[in-house]
Simulated assay, not measured.
Amino acid sequence: MSLIHSDNLTPKPWTDIFTDDTCIDRRKCHRKVPMKVLALGVGRTGTASLRKALERLGYVKCYHMMAASVENPPDCLMWHDALIAKYDGVGEFGRKEWDQLLGDCQAVCDWPACAFAKELIEAYPNAKVILTTRDVDSWHASVMKTVYWRVSDPEHKFVSNFSWAAGMYYPMLNKFFETFFRGDFPNQGKQVYQDHVDEIRRLVPKERLLEYSIGDWGPLCEFLGEEIPDTPFPRGNDMADFFSRCRTRNRMQMLNSALQAVTMGGALVATGLAATMAFKRFVR
């Protein structure tokens, strides 16, 4: 088996009818629009709301973890390749690959993108950079109850053994936590958060950087040179919604897998019957 995960993309099973995932092979894509905004704050700092806000301002697609987890799961294979290239030194992941993965996006936010702050800043030197921030204690508590729970969720792990989509997402999500959070989010998470903030401040000139606490159009629009919309600032991905969405996702993937198993079982039975009939005709 190839060490490059994106070499192992398999077609979406036709039995995956309970989810709306797409199966776009990003390796066949290229940059269509310029990258304008790199939002490099870690997840659970309002990144889902920021995604909605940037798209409301007219930025063509803002990439977010949900683009890989529930929209186009094959993206997870490329993110996994990026992680092993950076942290394990296996393979290469440079501007060409970023343009393939993010080529139809003018903005990117959330994780796993935040793990590649340096690489994305170097790849897109003309993009403005946003650093979403939050009180580190409340942030850590939020992640423990949401995304870290998702990483350690036994049901999610179980589903990943059978589901086409979860089989790509679950390993990538775990690889991200093992590498970016040094394999110990409960004890290392807060320090990684602070180290990440410090790194962004070192990497980005002040005139290109907005340190931003989600909730007000003003600072965001001023920084980007956009007019303030006449609609409230969007909200998204609160804790209750996170749990509900993940549980529903698990159930739908289980149904996909069950339908595939039943279909394969039926095909095997049909094949067996056909073989038996052919044998009987042969021995007559």
Rank of each mutant, 00 (worst) to 15 (best):
C221Q: 03
C221A: 09
E222W: 00
E222S: 11
F223T: 01
G225I: 08
G225Q: 11
G225F: 05
E226W: 09
E226A: 14
I228V: 14
I228A: 04
I228N: 05
P229G: 04
P229R: 00
P229I: 05
T231Y: 09
P232N: 06
P234C: 09
P234Y: 09
G236M: 06
D238G: 07
M239Q: 13
A240V: 04
D241N: 12
D241F: 06
F242Y: 15
C246N: 15
T248R: 13
T248W: 01
T248Y: 06
N250M: 15
N250L: 13
N250F: 09
R251V: 07
R251S: 11
M254V: 11
N256P: 04
N256K: 03
S257H: 06
S257A: 15
L259A: 07
Q260F: 12
Q260K: 14
Q260C: 01
V262Y: 01
V262C: 07
T263I: 02
G266S: 04
A267M: 12
L268Y: 13
V269F: 08
A270R: 11
L273R: 10
L273Y: 07
L273A: 01
A274C: 10
A275S: 13
A275D: 04
A275E: 06
M277C: 06
F279V: 07
R281M: 09
V283Y: 04
V283C: 04
V283R: 15
R284M: 07
